[in-house]
Amino acid sequence: MAKINILVVLALLLITACGSPANSKSAQAERLLPRAAVDTSDGLRIDGELVADRTLYEAARGQRVILYSAAGKEAEDLTIARFTAETGIAVELTRLPNNKLAERALSEHGAGKLGADVIRLTDPRTARKFTDAGVYVPYETPFHAQLKQSSPNWFAAYYFVNAMAYNSAIHTENPPDGWEDLVDLRFRGELGIVAITTGGTVNALTRFQLGTFGPQFLDGMAQQKPRVFNSTSTEVDALARGEISIATVSVNNAFGAETAGAPIRLVIPKEGVSASEGPLGLTPRGAQSAAAQVFVNWSASKAGQRFVGSQGFVPVRTDIGTVRTGDYELPTADSPRFHLLTEDGFARHAKADEALWKQKFGFIG
């Protein structure tokens, strides 16, 4: 398999990420999607929606939101930049993998010292634990009717989506264009996948593959002798370097690398994409914070939903029109090509799917 010069790729990424103030997170966010119209004459109205009434907004303006998040740091930094640009409210971020974040939040809460106002997760099973423990408390945004609320204590602020991608510097002719290419022997030894033990998004992908193509599809991928990664970020890095040439990927991660200059091209297959919920909720501390309430409200607003859509997530709201992710158009949440594994689906399938996945790929971990 041809290799990409790693120094060239890294230089491209460095030039894009660093340099002049024009390359700030706010500027990057603006390139993804122009800011919505903001009216603060009577509260906070963005894109025509009342995100916060006058009383709430006035109370929030001098406050800071403390956010714990298990989402990717690049995506969260961009989201924070857009939120602050549209609201004037600052956010302090602590980013940890979902399991580590859960340990910290539950420990802090048990000691009566939970430092977060808002917590974003990548696995709805953790959201259920947070609800049971009282880490998440009930809260209803002004846009409750437009959301699919799984619990009174949290809602999916967006959907994490998995599809596939290839190295566009290697596959210049006859590139992969569908899920069936993952089992095409011409890509033997070139496939990258992420271990199911990394969490919810890969559980959702496995359930989609089993439900759509059957267990034999996993057999076909196993015959490819894939390289198994312990995180999506390391997988995407390897794809950019040419260590693998085709992969199942988190759309947001792969799109971020592509926009940073990596030779990566996404594929949105005709059968669709897999998806899982991205829970967001207020803590007891956050329920007392006007700024935290504004953050959660904004996350459910048209402006917030459109912005996450521009990053490669699928918005939960289906009343906001088409949101493109660069050159790509992902299926909307009400499309038959959108395959969502809900919290109930995790409860029914995750354990058995994980055992089958490990058996098919000879994985111990």
Score class of each variant (00 low, 15 high):
residue 282 L to G: 04
residue 98 N to W: 01
residue 219 D to Q: 15
residue 78 L to M: 11
residue 285 R to H: 11
residue 118 V to K: 08
residue 327 D to K: 13
residue 70 A to H: 04
residue 112 G to W: 08
residue 36 A to G: 08
residue 301 S to N: 09
residue 186 R to Y: 06
residue 196 I to W: 00
residue 268 I to K: 04
residue 103 E to F: 10
residue 307 F to G: 00
residue 295 F to M: 10
residue 296 V to K: 03
residue 149 Q to D: 09
residue 19 G to R: 13
residue 52 A to D: 01
residue 242 G to T: 15
residue 91 V to A: 04
residue 320 I to A: 00
residue 314 V to F: 00
residue 38 V to Q: 01
residue 185 L to F: 13
residue 296 V to I: 13
residue 34 P to Y: 04
residue 4 I to R: 05
residue 24 S to M: 09
residue 133 A to P: 04
residue 356 L to R: 08
residue 30 E to C: 02
residue 259 T to F: 00
residue 203 N to F: 15
residue 193 I to M: 11
residue 164 M to R: 06
residue 73 K to V: 12
residue 58 E to F: 03
residue 350 A to P: 07
residue 12 L to K: 11
residue 118 V to E: 12
residue 202 V to R: 10
residue 268 I to L: 06
residue 268 I to S: 02
residue 200 G to C: 14
residue 273 V to A: 09
residue 19 G to H: 06
residue 24 S to V: 07
residue 163 A to W: 01
residue 35 R to K: 12
residue 235 E to H: 12
residue 92 E to G: 09
residue 277 E to M: 05
residue 351 K to I: 14
residue 108 E to L: 11
residue 170 I to E: 05
residue 59 A to H: 05
residue 193 I to Q: 03
residue 281 G to N: 12
residue 271 E to A: 14
residue 88 G to M: 11
residue 111 A to M: 13
residue 268 I to D: 00
residue 299 S to P: 08
residue 290 A to R: 12
residue 311 Q to R: 10
residue 174 N to K: 15
residue 102 A to I: 02
residue 339 H to A: 11
residue 134 G to Y: 08
residue 18 C to E: 06
residue 220 G to N: 04
residue 154 W to G: 00
residue 361 F to A: 13
residue 210 L to Y: 12
residue 43 G to S: 03
residue 244 I to K: 02
residue 144 H to M: 14
residue 116 A to I: 04
